[in-house]
């Protein structure tokens, strides 16, 4: 299987889906002439022309709404946000329009559209450019939210997102775009709503998604050297969440750590912990712990930025704690 980057995997997904269905078009800032701020849309303008690869002004609310309107009359827009930080200006269209149109029209207007772009922190971009929005978006009924952690998942989930008749949020990662993995050249999709067991182990579950999947896999490999076997549940989809996969893992390991990129309060981890306490209460040998960003805006300076972010060391410490292993 070809080894390609996460970026190229997304590019393949877009290209294949645009060939497959001429209702699919891509719109956003710098997606055309510039080939995408992160080069995800490289070559697409040349291949599909400017009606289908649309460079927009810096007008997030406006072009998100253009996507909603186009979806109402049967097109299948893929709306790229240069990063999710800027999508906050478009939240009215995502939350009040895309997520609710089907419901408030009594089922008349489905919203087959995708909102996608990099989510979460990169390096030293500081407070306004380093935020993980999973919990904001996953809170909303009517949306689906996927967060691929590998190139293989990125291609398969983006293709599913584009074919889905509901609004799907695709959370990518600036720090993931250059990561490599095996990705088939041909067409395949990954079902939305199903988790993936990325690593197997029977001592402790790590439940995670998106960029943190890479962290969790490193934790798995490092702890394996100490004889600690970790189960890594990659949610892949945050909404609807694969609760069965979470409970199956926790019933096997009896211990869990939830790892997420975002903040603690009302975070994704809080939801996962709720499923666990509800469905695995009698299976737990320790309280469930959470690893997440420090409860502060992201700082710029290197050392304190590092201290703010969830990482391998913090996750290992949490796993050892739920296993009652002295550090």
């Amino acid at each position: 299987m070809p080894l390609i980057t996460y970026r190229d995997a997304l590019n393949q997904a877009l290209r294949e889906e645009m060939h497959r269905d001429d209702r699919v078009f891509l719109m956003g800032e710098e997606v055309g002439v510039y080939n995408g701020a992160y080069k995800v849309s490289k070559g697409l303008l040349e291949e599909f022309g400017e009606m289908r690869v649309v460079d927009t002004p810096i007008t997030e609310l406006g072009f998100a709404g253009v996507g909603v309107g186009a979806a109402m009359v049967g097109l299948r827009p893929v709306v790229e946000f240069m990063t999710w930080n800027f999508a906050l200006l478009a939240l009215d269209q995502i939350v009040n329009a895309a997520a609710k149109m089907l419901y408030m029209s009594g089922g008349q207007f489905p919203m087959p559209l995708v909102f996608r772009g990099p989510n979460g922190a990169a390096l030293q971009l500081s407070a306004q450019h380093s935020q993980a929005w999973e919990s904001w978006l996953a809170h909303i009924p009517g949306l689906k939210v996927v967060a691929p952690g590998t190139p293989y998942d990125a291609k398969g989930l983006l293709k599913s997102a584009i074919r889905d008749d509901n609004p799907v949020i695709v959370l990518e990662g600036e720090m993931l775009y250059n990561t490599k993995g095996e990705v088939p050249d041909e067409d395949y999709v990954i079902p939305i709503g199903k988790a993936d067991l990325k690593r197997e182990g029977d001592h402790c579950s790590i439940i995670t998604s998106g960029k943190m999947v890479l962290v969790a896999m490193q934790v798995h490999d490092q702890l394996a050297k100490e004889g600690i076997r970790v189960d890594v549940v990659d949610l892949r989809t945050i909404r609807p969440m694969d609760v069965d996969a979470i409970t199956a893992s926790v019933r096997k390991t009896n211990r869990a750590v939830v790892l997420e990129e975002g903040w603690e309060v009302c975070g994704i981890g809080a939801q996962v912990v709720d499923y666990i306490q509800r469905d695995c209460f009698d299976h737990l040998d320790a309280p469930v712990l959470r690893v997440h960003q420090a409860d502060v805006p992201m700082p710029y300076a290197k050392a304190i930025e590092k201290a703010a972010k969830p990482d391998v060391a913090k996750t290992i410490a949490a796993v050892k704690k739920v296993m009652y292993i002295e550090a």
């Binding site: 609310l61 253009v66 309107g69």
Partner: peptide, 10 residues
Amino acid sequence: IPMATGVGFA
């Protein structure tokens, strides 16, 4: 208003 603009686009 952006939605109507999107219908025009379509």
